[in-house]
Design a protein around this nucleic acid. Sequence first.
DNA 1: ATAACTCGTTCACTTAAGTGAAGAAATACG
DNA 2: CGTATTTCTTCACTTAAGTGAACGAGTTAT
Lengths: 191, 191
Amino acid sequence: MQDILFDFISKYVTLTDDEKNAILALDIFHSVKKGTTLLKEGQKSNENYFVLKGCLRKYYMIDGEEKTTAFITEMEALTPHCVMTKNPSEYYISCVEDAILLISTSDMETEINSKFPKFELMCRILSEERLGKQQIDFDEFKTSSPEQRYLNLLESRPDLIQRVPQHQLASFLGIKPQSLSRLRARILEKK
Amino acid sequence: MQDILFDFISKYVTLTDDEKNAILALDIFHSVKKGTTLLKEGQKSNENYFVLKGCLRKYYMIDGEEKTTAFITEMEALTPHCVMTKNPSEYYISCVEDAILLISTSDMETEINSKFPKFELMCRILSEERLGKQQIDFDEFKTSSPEQRYLNLLESRPDLIQRVPQHQLASFLGIKPQSLSRLRARILEKK
DNA sequence: ATAACTCGTTCACTTAAGTGAAGAAATACG
DNA sequence: CGTATTTCTTCACTTAAGTGAACGAGTTAT
């Protein structure tokens, strides 16, 4: 389990044993059961999540309806917006599948960053990487129809379509579950 | 002009005169005329843009149609995706209004960052800030209808609606110019 | 000054998504 | 094991966006 983490980190910076131990001392590995809600709307939090195994879902509750805007799977991180703003959260985060997470608090990160400046660098690279990825995702979303978005998802994250309920997938694609059903039927017909 | 830049920076880190001079020595202030294309699809580049005055537009050319995905205005930055990946650009960047820009190359940033580690910190904060803002924008886009998106824009960036051609605004909202016209008429009727 | 373009709007028509209801299938739970 | 609930699909109908064409207003170029 720890190997997965250090393999990931080694892509960005090289750690000494001291540094590895400092991380392990933080005791950040956590198992989370399917269905657990990690963050609720209106709640304050300073926890950051990194998914080693499983799948998290981020969703808003708008007019009594869940609007899913992200799925976070293996090797992806999520820093809730409210952690940065120190305000109550605008959205929910829940666990779609049994998961193993790294949960770190902002304090921990500040501590590690000040002890080992190397982490500052890694955080910047990671955050720029994510910014870039997200910009591309956003552009793709804007420039596509729901049908194209579904086909793109089929290409880029085929696992999601299997592991996630359709109605959550629908709102992730910006449409209603009924429209997703219809759209899938339409695609099958075309073939 | 320089004051605008240093006022902006001072929100994140405090600079010594040495550091300020090091920045000025880079000669990064540029005037750009309306209509200028700063980056074309297929082109390689390592330039980052920061808008002091004016407005840039980022757009894709898909099936012979321009798809605008971003407007960059005062105090906003744009690092083209191709600068990070070192690949040819997938999109265009052009100048919507006469503008004054900071144009820096990746080399310059590396140089400044290694001379003054303080910049590393500022870059991280800026990139995390942008990441957060963009996540919220993306969520808002996903959870809204075109009409709501237009109303939101009217709230959050009313200047854009004035300073940018409607057909560019339409594709930014994810719809066709005709639909934007209709949608505006619909809103006026309701009032 | 006039011709050529660009831009925004409107119209009629097509296509796809939203809505509400109903039912089948899968899953969870007592 | 069987009941309840969730999940997915289908249907009929409504609403809004896409499409292609046309028009006038404003801009640019010659």
